[in-house]
Design a binder for these strands. Structure first.
Length: 568
RNA sequence: GUGUCUGUAGCUCAACUGGAUAGAGCAUCUGACUUCGGAUCAGAAGGUUGGGGGUUCGAAUCCCUCCAGGCACGCCA
């Protein structure tokens, strides 16, 4: 199925060819409803190229442009835009097509990619905290959207399970561990031990040296230390899994840093042999002398003490993903502070001859109401698990207030759908680069651009069908007379145009914004157009509009990783 | 110092690869209810897009410069 945008764009290309013009400009959704539904700037560009009046050029294009089955007569407006207003019957026809389409009009990609998405990436021996919500929710949403569009996606959790912090964890485990506390809350005890060891090692050089020794033993395969490490990883993973379960986010593979450990020496040898890397001050380093922004920012791939660092392991990761996972597209959903690191890694990969499409997808911070990095009162990171549980508790209170008649099981389920949805939506509905201020009241509000508002629009639709005693409409014949009906139907047709746009620059907020406008359009329709009280065939048409709206809300939210309740 | 990101209504945020008179939501003010869930709708008011230059038919968007803030910049990850 083709969208109005692609249909009109094709007609425009034809008209340009017939008029002897080159194919220039673009056809987009109108920037303002005053200008109709779609617009093209082709005449503006041609006018400039040819030194003619753009409005005259526009008139020439219109002579060759046949869109009479889709649009009212297009007009030349303003400086030379050509504007299109869809015909109501064309919209009705398209709505019927959408109605019959499980994909709701969204086309599969003509050139499917083989993508690996690296997102989430918590560290072992540290609890997941609010900072992880962005990478995790964003990466999951991108994975869902890319999959729906038809790409082949592998979700990879690149867990921080190897590195210098394990010297401290192991020393702490041997010297400070409280076994009872470990039984009660394993991760909390590991974290306590890690923190205390960290504090001691900064003040006591002997402890620092002992930690270093433990790390060396671990890395050379010492049995006891490997055992402790295994246990720490397993306990941390259990905690992560609990959070992923709450979030309904799941991975295809979880290849952490340790997975690449035995490849690191080979990476360094190879880069030295190919002269991409060189020895400098005892370390193995890659310089980027030809790249101005990186010229004074070398990348160390082996420390002077012989140890490897995260750059080494990320290079090994690139190699694995391309060669063994046979990926041609690598997405890294990792915070903005690591921008330089990824530029270096991607540059090295290019020098090694890897042709894949590398994308670092950076994002900003979550701030507290005080506009500083979100922390607890005592200055600690806010554990993600605790935050998600609080979201459910707060959502539960709202449900209790609004709809006390629900059963206990329903309340639990709905509170979770709303609470988790609110947290994810607050994140995804904003441009990823801007820091955002975390506010329970705003994200759980029932009005405004929030998950509960969208979920409520869906609930109202379901309520109509419950009242009608029908689970689905009986007709797919759309009769669009009222302006609220036409506006809503046009909005429904735009879903298929919006979804692929998200991946242009990895902006789920575009989809979130669309869904908000859709819900808004539905409410306006709901106000102006009685459904169950109207006579056939209008009643059936309006039920079909409700159904289609509900399905798009549900699917759109699903692409963001958010569920919808039947009641709330 | 170098690089990079951010700066838009009182507040929280949009504006896809440059498009027309910069849009929403909160909050404020005016209206509409024996409502298919008012958990709503209709409307008003609110702006020198941090400042200043430049590029062009056209700039929040691109270039230069300055201001404010964040982050990163060989041996943590």
């Amino acid at each position: 199925m083709q969208t109005f945008q692609t249909l009109l764009a094709k007609r425009l290309v034809d008209a340009l060819a017939k008029a002897g013009f080159p194919n220039v400009g673009e056809l987009t959704q109108a920037t303002d409803s005053r200008f109709g539904d779609y617009q093209t700037n082709a005449a503006l560009i041609l006018g400039k190229q040819r030194g003619e009046n753009p409005r005259d050029v526009g008139a020439k294009i219109l002579e060759r442009l046949d869109v009479s089955d889709l649009s009212e007569s297009p007009t030349v407006a303003g400086a030379g835009f050509i504007n299109f207003t869809l015909r109501a019957d064309a919209v009705a026809k398209k709505a019927a097509e959408l109605f019959a389409d499980e994909r709701l009009g969204v086309a599969r990609s003509a050139s499917p990619k083989k993508i690996v998405i690296d997102f989430g990436s918590p560290n072992v021996a540290k609890p997941m905290h609010v900072g992880h919500i962005r990478s995790t929710a964003l990466g999951d949403a991108l994975a869902r959207i890319a999959t729906f569009i038809g790409h082949d996606v592998i979700r990879d959790n690149h867990i921080g399970d190897w590195g210098t912090q394990f010297g401290m964890v192991i020393w702490g485990w041997k010297n400070l561990l409280d076994r009872e506390a470990l039984q009660r809350d394993p991760l909390a005890e590991i974290v306590r031990v890690y923190k205390e060891t960290n504090a001691r090692s900064t003040s006591d050089p002997a402890v620092r040296e002992a930690c270093r020794q433990e790390l060396v033993k671990l890395q050379s395969g010492d049995k006891e230390n490997t055992g402790i490490w295994n246990e720490c990883v397993a306990l941390s993973m259990q905690d992560f899994e609990h959070v992923y379960e709450l979030l309904d986010i799941h991975y295809d593979i979880q290849c952490g840093e340790s997975f690449y450990d035995d490849r690191l020496a080979g990476v360094v040898d190879r880069l030295l042999k190919s002269k991409i890397a060189e020895v400098s001050e005892g370390a193995v380093v890659v310089f980027f002398r030809g790249v101005p922004e990186l010229a004074d920012k070398p990348c160390i791939i082996r420390k002077s003490d012989g140890g490897f660092n995260y750059a080494t392991s990320d290079i090994a990761t690139v190699e694995y993903r391309i060669n063994e996972l046979t990926r041609d597209t690598l997405w890294y959903v990792v915070g903005a502070p690591q921008t330089l690191h990824f530029r270096q890694i991607f540059e090295i990969a290019r020098r090694e001859g890897y042709k894949a499409d590398f994308r670092h997808i950076p994002f900003g911070n979550v701030l507290g109401e005080d506009r500083k990095l979100m922390k607890t009162r005592s200055g600690e990171n806010v554990p993600l698990r605790q935050l998600l549980e609080e979201a459910c508790v707060r959502a539960r209170k709202i449900v209790e207030e609004k709809n006390p008649g629900l059963t206990e099981a329903e309340k639990i389920d709905i509170a979770r759908t709303i609470g988790i949805g609110a947290v994810k939506y607050a994140d995804l509905s904003q441009y990823r680069m801007t820091d955002y201020i975390f506010s329970w009241d705003k994200m759980l509000a029932l009005q405004g651009n929030t998950a509960p508002y969208l979920q409520n629009a869906y609930v109202r639709i379901r309520s109509i069908f419950r009242k009608a005693g029908e689970s689905a409409p009986k007709t797919d014949k759309f009769i669009l007379n009222e302006s609220a009906e036409i506006t809503l139907a046009k909005r429904l047709c735009q879903f298929a145009e919006i979804v692929p746009q998200v991946l242009n620059d990895f902006r789920p907020n575009i989809l979130a914004n669309y869904l908000f406008e859709l819900a808004d359009g539905f409410h306006a329709f709901y106000e102006a157009c009685p459904v169950l009280r109207s006579d056939e065939p209008v009643r059936g048409s309006r039920l079909a509009l409700c159904d289609l709206t509900g399905r798009i809300l549900q699917r759109g939210l699903d692409l963001l990783g958010i569920k919808v309740p039947e009641k709330m």
